Amino acid sequence: GKMTGIVKWFNADKGFGFITPDDGSKDVFVHFSAIQNDGYKSSDEGQKVSFTIESGAKGPAAGNVTSL
């Protein structure tokens, strides 16, 4: 299901970062391709987002990331 969290950091040059879930669980990796914004796929530190957890090649990753 959908979770909410805060972007801990995001490196636009490398195209990835981490989200800290609101439920206190482990930080989740986020790749720019998962960000659902139109246009520039980046996110700012401290941005509140909703997301799903997908199982990626390197473990859990955020999917369907949407700014709230």
Rank of each mutant, 00 (worst) to 15 (best):
K2S: 09
K2D: 05
K2W: 12
M3V: 09
M3W: 07
G5P: 00
I6M: 07
K8E: 03
W9F: 08
W9Q: 02
F10V: 05
F10K: 00
N11R: 06
D13E: 14
K14Y: 08
K14M: 12
K14G: 05
G15E: 04
G15H: 04
G15T: 05
G17V: 05
G17Q: 00
G17W: 03
F18C: 11
F18D: 01
I19L: 05
I19G: 00
T20I: 12
P21L: 04
P21G: 03
P21K: 00
P21W: 04
D22C: 14
D23P: 01
G24V: 02
S25M: 05
K26I: 08
K26F: 08
D27L: 06
V28C: 07
F29E: 01
F29D: 02
F29T: 00
V30R: 00
H31F: 08
H31T: 05
H31P: 06
H31Q: 04
F32N: 07
S33M: 07
S33H: 06
I35Q: 02
I35M: 13
I35D: 03
I35Y: 13
I35T: 04
Q36W: 11
Q36A: 11
Q36E: 10
N37I: 14
D38I: 13
D38A: 13
G39T: 10
G39K: 09
Y40V: 11
K41H: 11
K41S: 12
K41T: 13
S42K: 10
S42Q: 09
S43R: 09
S43A: 15
S43Q: 11
S43H: 13
D44Q: 15
D44I: 15
E45S: 15
E45Q: 15
E45P: 15
G46C: 13
G46Y: 10
G46E: 06
G46N: 10
Q47T: 13
K48F: 08
K48D: 03
V49M: 04
V49D: 03
V49Q: 00
V49F: 03
F51I: 04
F51S: 02
T52L: 06
T52Q: 06
T52D: 07
I53N: 02
E54Y: 14
E54W: 10
E54S: 10
E54C: 13
E54K: 09
S55F: 15
G56T: 15
G56S: 14
G56Q: 11
G56I: 04
A57W: 13
K58D: 08
K58F: 14
G59E: 02
P60D: 08
A61V: 15
A61M: 15
A61P: 02
A62I: 02
A62H: 01
N64V: 06
N64G: 06
N64Q: 08
N64K: 08
V65P: 01
V65H: 00
V65Y: 00
T66P: 02
T66R: 08
S67F: 15
S67E: 08
S67D: 07
L68C: 11
